[in-house]
Every structure is written in C-alpha cells, then in structure tokens.
Design a protein around this nucleic acid. Sequence first.
DNA 1: ATTAAGATTGAGACCAAATCTCAATCAGAA
DNA 2: TTCTGATTGAGATTTGGTCTCAATCTTAAT
Lengths: 150, 150
Amino acid sequence: MKDETRKFQKFIQKSNLLWSIEREIITNQVFDNHFHFTADDLFIQLNEKGRKISRATVYRTLELLEKSSMVSKIQLASGKHFYEHIFGHKHHDHLICQKCGRMIEFHCEDIEQWQEKISTENNFKMAGHCLKIYGICADCMKKKSKNKPK
Amino acid sequence: MKDETRKFQKFIQKSNLLWSIEREIITNQVFDNHFHFTADDLFIQLNEKGRKISRATVYRTLELLEKSSMVSKIQLASGKHFYEHIFGHKHHDHLICQKCGRMIEFHCEDIEQWQEKISTENNFKMAGHCLKIYGICADCMKKKSKNKPK
DNA sequence: ATTAAGATTGAGACCAAATCTCAATCAGAA
DNA sequence: TTCTGATTGAGATTTGGTCTCAATCTTAAT
Ligand SMILES: [Zn+2]
Ligand SMILES: [Zn+2]
Ligand SMILES: [Zn+2]
Ligand SMILES: [Zn+2]
C-alpha cells in the first residue's frame, strides 16, 4: 500500500469510518495521477484496469479525500471540476491557458499574505482560497495554433 | 433605454447580430441588479414583471453580455454561477461566506501587481483572473446560526 | 466462531443547471 | 414588400453529480 493510502486509512479510522478495498483501490489510483484529473477520469481509469467500482463510490471517496485535506478540488471556468492530490505537495495556484487548457502551477507567498490581511480587515475567517489566472501560455503564443481546450 | 443597454446594443450591432426587444428587456434587468445574481434570479424577476422570456434566451443573452465584457460570471465552489455587471464598476475580487453565501467585494492592488509579475515570469499572457477567498463572515461567526448558503 | 450494529457499496433513479433542437417568428437589407 | 438569415420559445436533452435502498461488508462483542 502506498504511504499516502496508509495515511488516508488512518484518517478514515480516526474519523470512525471503515476502511474498504474500494477506498484502497481508489486512493491508490488518485495518488497515481500526478497532475489534475476529474472524477470521471478516475472512474474510467479504474474501469480500464478492470476494477468495477461505481461512480457513486468514486465521488464519495473523493469527498472524503478532500475532507482529509489530502486532495483538493479545482473549479474551472468551463464548470468542470478537477482534483489534484496535495499531500506531499505544497499549496499552489494556477495559470490556465485558454487555448490548450494547460495548467501551470505557481506559488506566491506575498499573495498568500495579502489574502490573510484582507480577510482580517474584513473580520472574515478565511478557510481557503482559489486563485486562477487565465490567459495564453508561451507555447500557444508561439504556435498560434488552435488546439482545443480540455 | 439605459446607457448600459445602449452600449450593449452597439456591441450587438457591431458584432453583426440583431437587436431585439428581449435583449433590451433582459439587459435593463441586468443593470437593475446592483449586486450578484444568478441566471434564474433574472428569469424569475422578469416573470414577476410579467415578461414572458424563456430561460434559453436569458442564458443566451447573459453569454453575449459576458462576451461584451459588460458582465462577468462568478463560479462558486458550490457549483452555482453568479453574474454581476462590471460596466461602470471597477475590478474587484470576492470574499465568500461558506455559511450564508454572502459575498464581500474587495480590491487589492498589490495582489493585482503580483499576478502580473507571475504571469510575466511564466511567459504567460494574462487575460484575466479569478480570486475567491472562502471562509466565514463576521456575522456568521457571531451568530453561529445555520443559515443555508445561497 | 457467531452475532449484532452500523457502515459501505452498486445500480440506477433522480436532480438542477445549462444547452440544444427546430419550427415559427422577427429584423433589417434590398 | 420580399427575402435571408438571426432570434425566439417550449420542451427535450445533456451534463455532472447526488440520492436511495437492499445487499454486503467491517468491526467489536459475545
Ligand atoms: Zn494560493
Ligand atoms: Zn496553452
Ligand atoms: Zn456569513
Ligand atoms: Zn462582485
């Protein structure tokens, strides 16, 4: 079992929930995806591996993974939800190419600090944030090709 | 006709599209909403005024208003879409209360600057951005009541 | 090893938001 | 006035996700 999966198992047990083979399989798959993926990506990957796990269980497990803070959900302007695992990765935000859909990760401590400051000024108890910068990536600027976005 | 509506009419005509009474009614209603609203809010408001305009037309017109850069769409983590008119308002971002759904607007020039800087560093041609800070607002912190989110 | 209590699962029903279809209508140019 | 193409409404469809509930599984207590 992957380290990450074991950590999630501990979370499940601490939360007085039960560990199951489905949760193990899904979690392993989540941590095999080293970039952004959708719930359906995951469902299809599992299917291709011959794992018959229902869509409902995939969604339920992703929700738990989110609660455990090991995975985070990203909403794109297109309305699609992507996930990414964050355990072992430090917090980052995204540059998103409107041409090809490419996502570039970045982290800016100053921006993080300013957000805290603004929240405090507004007597707002910040729990999280979502920053996405939209535009055209370097490749697409060069190519000017019309790759369809994801 | 409102100034804003006239401006949108010009956009429609410049785009080689046709102006229609439905577009006029919807646009007027959009600019009567001085805060955030959903497509359905708009549809209901129009209905209450006795204006029989189909949902499809409301969505289609909001899409055009977005293209004209007079209106922007805000996507919440909950999956709901809100709109707000931006023509005549300066750019701002949002603090969003996870309890009551309240949105507080803010503007932070430093954050704006850092975003430009990051984009440049990544050879990314920034076109726009979306920053949402999630948490609990001052009122909800006090009340601790369980208002349902919008 | 049995049993009981409660959690988890899968299949498919369900849901809300948004988009699509297409015939009827409308706007604007000629 | 006529013509062409754009727009509209009603409802079907799609999408992305949640809910239901009987069957199954996990765990802990006998
Ligand atoms: Zn950040
Ligand atoms: Zn790109
Ligand atoms: Zn609140
Ligand atoms: Zn706003």
